[in-house]
Amino acid sequence: MRLPLLIGAILSATALSAAAVSLAWTPYDIAALAIADKLQPPSAAHWFGTDHFGRDIGSMLMAGAQTSIAVALVAVGIGMGLGVPLGLLAAANRGGLIDEAVMRANDLVFAFPSLVIAILITAVFGPSAVNAILAIGIFNIPVFARVVRGGALSLWTLDFTRAAEVAGKGAARISIEHILPNVANLLIVQGTIQFSLGILAEAGLSYVGLGAQPPTASWGRMLAEAQTMVTLAPHVAIFPGLAIVFTVLGLNLLGDGLRDRLDPRSRRAP
């Protein structure tokens, strides 16, 4: 395994396992306040220190990972679930009216800066993790639709799809049996990248107060709250910041590494 892929896999696995463990156990209860212990620097008892309410930052990071990953994962799910069928449909109808309609609808979504629309959605329906998921998910749809359509278009020019037509198979069946397995590589890679972008978007929304609401832990909100104390107790801002950076970096490295690894040209049979 190449080094960047290995690093990406380790960083991503760390974030994922932190989130998984936090479901059952965190070193401290993140809802319990202990004002007496506030803003303690990292120590043996609190590895990452405590915040202005005396909560353990390490525990909050673990719980925050859970929020970030859940939001990004569901958002990627929405994007794939709707984008992939749309992309397959557009490619099967290549050059036709449906293709045109799907792609222009994609352009419409692409035309708006994603964060602005996310703010709009949460402003209208109220800030919550669910609305953040929806906002991020909607922007994943055209990304997946385009990636799948692009891959599918080149597959439709290959003779094996022609052979399937000669065998009497319809466009829907060919899309599922022949096109989908061959664009799976593209989907895995794009999925990983959208996942990291989703984490970034969730952090951004929480930072401006439009994501997960207290008492749910969130990296973005931890940053927002630490903002005023950054000169007083820098560790309160540094650790959530590092958590975001390393998770996003890890997922990007993983995505790039997987792209190289899954590229059929790099593992052509002798």
Binding site: D159, F160, R162, V166, A167, N182
Partner: peptide, 27 residues
Amino acid sequence: QVVFQDPYGSFNPRHRVHRLVAEPFHL
């Protein structure tokens, strides 16, 4: 039935030969 020109593009690389050869049975 038909045989195409390109021996590399004529088959779905993700299927095994028995599935590829049996495809016309769909008809």
